[in-house]
Computed example of a mutant assay.
Amino acid sequence: MRASITALSLLGALSAVHADLHHLIVGTFGTESLYTLEFDDSALTLNLIQNLTVSTASSWIALSHDKKNLYGTALSSGSSAVPAFVSYALGNATDITYSNLVDLGGNCSSSKAIFVMAATESPYAVYGTPFGGTADCGAVISVDESGVLSELIQNYTYKSTSAVHGLAMNTQNTFLYSADDSGNTLWTHSVDNTTGELTYVASLDGPATGSDPRHVAIHPEGQYLYVILEGANELAQYTVDQSTGIPSFQNVTYPLIPSGSDSSSFWSDEVALSYSTNYLWATSRARSTNATGYISAFSLATDGSITSQLFLSPTTNSGGTANSVSPSPFTDTFVALTDSSVGFVEIWQLAENGTSASVVARADLDDGGCCANAVWYS
């Protein structure tokens, strides 16, 4: 009975009414560009409407809570280039203006900034992490009254073997979770609701040696945390203690590559919740450009627990260093998927019964550095 009720709720979410035209902004790994794409959800077309030259490539971008600012990873341009974070003011999806650049700071000698995210509650601090070199640290950056990156207010540390690749914050903005790929660790920090600064709470080793947590997402109810295990090529579900904020692993995992596949030929990538939070999306990438990655979706109960893995389908290419999935903010039906091995963005559509998905639109952006991740502006 529970499964039937869940299925009905999923179908209801899929039939939600939405507008026709939507816009996405896409970052790159190696070219100094930001792309704006327009998706027509009636005609099922995806078109490039702007290629904006900027001062730095951003391998990860994120929107502010009000979509008035765009934040990205960057390599600062000085006599000695260092990892940094950049912000742009947004008038709309094509009105993008450079605002400021803030260095990672501290004793971090990493080769690059890898991830950035913004809090959704005041004081709306921005959080970023590096990867490569000495990457055992993170940055907390304040914003001004307009949401522009202002100054570095905290460098916090993980451990000497760390390199955090993904962050997620609970809905209340009280806890930050860090997926430590190189350190095979999941970290919990509490968030100061006045400054946005972090305090260490706990760390938890990956389920096994070489599991390598890469990206993480948390359900709005706060009871479940979803972690991509890059090395194990699995999605892991953690339960979260509501009083301490500390997650625990209950041995619940799902495969992100087909049974019998050589796990060393893949590296799993991204996890993200759908618009209604009735679904969870996850992806893996192929290490060879001659193979495909995989995309999967899961049905969720109202408390956020995974009820079933709906499908595991090959993507149209390896994904390169991307295969980053970005669910639309207006319906469960569509997700954007990026690829860096060829350089394209695709829109995948979930079937009405939720048991499969397929490509319905594509934009090729082969510039030698595209595409990293995409964010939906509208």
Rank of each mutant, 00 (worst) to 15 (best):
D303R: 11
L198Y: 02
Q223L: 13
I295S: 00
T289N: 14
G222T: 11
T239M: 04
L176A: 07
L300C: 03
L300M: 05
T292S: 13
I257L: 03
G231I: 05
G210L: 14
S203Y: 05
Y177W: 11
N233R: 11
S268K: 09
P220T: 02
G293H: 09
G245T: 13
S182G: 07
T174R: 02
E270N: 13
T307E: 13
Y200C: 05
S265K: 06
A272Q: 10
Q309K: 10
L273G: 07
F298T: 05
H189W: 06
E270P: 01
Q309D: 07
L176I: 14
Y200H: 15
N290D: 14
P207N: 02
A291I: 03
S305G: 06
L229Y: 03
G245M: 11
S296P: 01
T244I: 11
H219K: 03
V227N: 03
Q309C: 12
H215I: 01
V216K: 01
H189M: 14
R287N: 15
H189K: 10
S299E: 03
N173H: 06
I246T: 12
A286P: 11
W267N: 10
S308F: 00
S276D: 09
M169L: 15
P247I: 05
V201Q: 15
Y238Q: 09
I295Y: 00
G231K: 04
T195C: 15
A236S: 09
T283I: 04
S243G: 09
T209H: 02
Y238H: 10
Y226V: 06
T174K: 00
N278R: 15
F298M: 10
L204P: 01
Q250C: 01
H219Y: 05
